[in-house]
Design a protein around this nucleic acid. Structure first.
Lengths: 201, 201
DNA sequence: CTCACAACTTGACACTGGCTAGATTGCCCG
DNA sequence: CGGGCAATCTAGCCAGTGTCAAGTTGTGAG
């Protein structure tokens, strides 16, 4: 008999076409909804409409999948941070990244779920780190009377904390219905008031 | 035959005594080491030296256990924040709490793992929130020329981000072998330079 | 003292998931 | 056009988990 290819209305060729991408996006959906805990390769296969063993071909195992997600996330983050005009803009972009890619963000900072020694992951992470340091470097040395090392930690902590709390719905009260990125901008300006300190001095 | 009670060198009475506590601490160990993903009631039972069904008696299920941990965490956090002398001290205490109770901290901010409507959890969370607002209120209004609402978000974000990144070993480079709490103190002073802005003006 | 209840145990069931092996399909290169 | 390789499928094994249903043991209240 002819191959039972009447599964869906859409044609379902033997080769999915881009199963890797399909599994990735399905995984992102699941993670964004239920967190990384409720993630199984079999479930993703179901969602993608392929057999349960197919995903393992692209990502060796669960950890491999999560590692790939994290690597992709650091790549995306690096890309947007590189385009930042100054430190505050970098912070806003950091927060925006977390909001637009909550699943990536969550996985990126859950080292216990990742294959730490993975090459793609480590290189992407370095890339993002460089981008962040680049943004910190846009602050003219001494402008804030601060150690650039400390300033980097401060900026990263502020943006990361804001983003994390935001995703955890811990800022729903204070932020209200305002645009989170705008609120973050206000916070950042308040603390890193470069202009103010210069003008006031 | 007499009950086979020669399991261990220690006496192992039928009633564990405080199994609830034992399971909790075992869970904290596991979480601190492998994250909340690799957590199973059966494993905890093994570690506590009891039968596999015993833990369910105290915590209905996995989610119940994690919820209990989160509630305990918020309680502990509230306690230490209440004793803070000022905002910076509260921040340092926040970071210290995260370092001393990494498992609690991790679970507290993973809402996807918790029973959100749990009473103990919500009350403990409110308590912690009040303590935090109390610390923010120690800043004399207008001293920093800032909206207290924003200041709260800023302080919380900074401390939370620092703590999170620290636990994820993302600050190993910048912090080096210095005391993390001291580094955080420096960061906080740099950004929230209340004295400086007053004296410099 | 006894009786009811809480803490715990044992055993079994149903499910899910990861992993492996071997067949099958289709694309692409020579 | 033919062969080889990568992608995918089918099938099944095994380990682990939560959960239920009875039993057993200790404890404390009356």
């Amino acid at each position: 008999m002819p191959p039972a290819q009447s599964r869906n209305s859409a044609e379902r060729p033997y080769h999915h076409g881009d199963l890797r991408r399909a599994v990735l996006t399905a995984a992102l959906d699941v993670i964004a909804a239920d967190g990384p805990s409720g993630l199984s390769l079999r479930d993703l296969a179901r969602r993608a409409g392929v057999s349960h063993a197919a995903p393992a071909h692209h990502f060796k195992d669960r950890t491999g999948l999560l590692t790939a997600i994290a690597a992709e996330g650091f790549g995306l983050l690096a890309a947007t941070l590189t385009e930042a005009s100054d430190l505050k803009d970098a912070g806003v972009r950091y927060v925006r990244f977390a909001r637009e890619h909550p699943a990536h963000f969550q996985v990126m900072f859950s080292p216990q779920l990742l294959r730490a020694e993975d090459l793609e992951l480590t290189t992407a992470r370095v890339l993002a780190g460089d981008a962040l340091r680049g943004a910190v470097a846009t602050v003219r040395p001494g402008e804030l009377g601060l150690d650039p090392r400390l300033a980097g930690v401060a900026a990263w902590s502020l943006a990361h904390g804001f983003a994390t709390l935001l995703l955890g719905h811990n800022l729903d009260g204070p932020v209200g219905n305002r645009d989170p990125e705008e609120v973050f901008g206000a916070v950042a300006t308040m603390l890193f008031r470069a202009d103010a300190s210069v003008k006031d001095a």
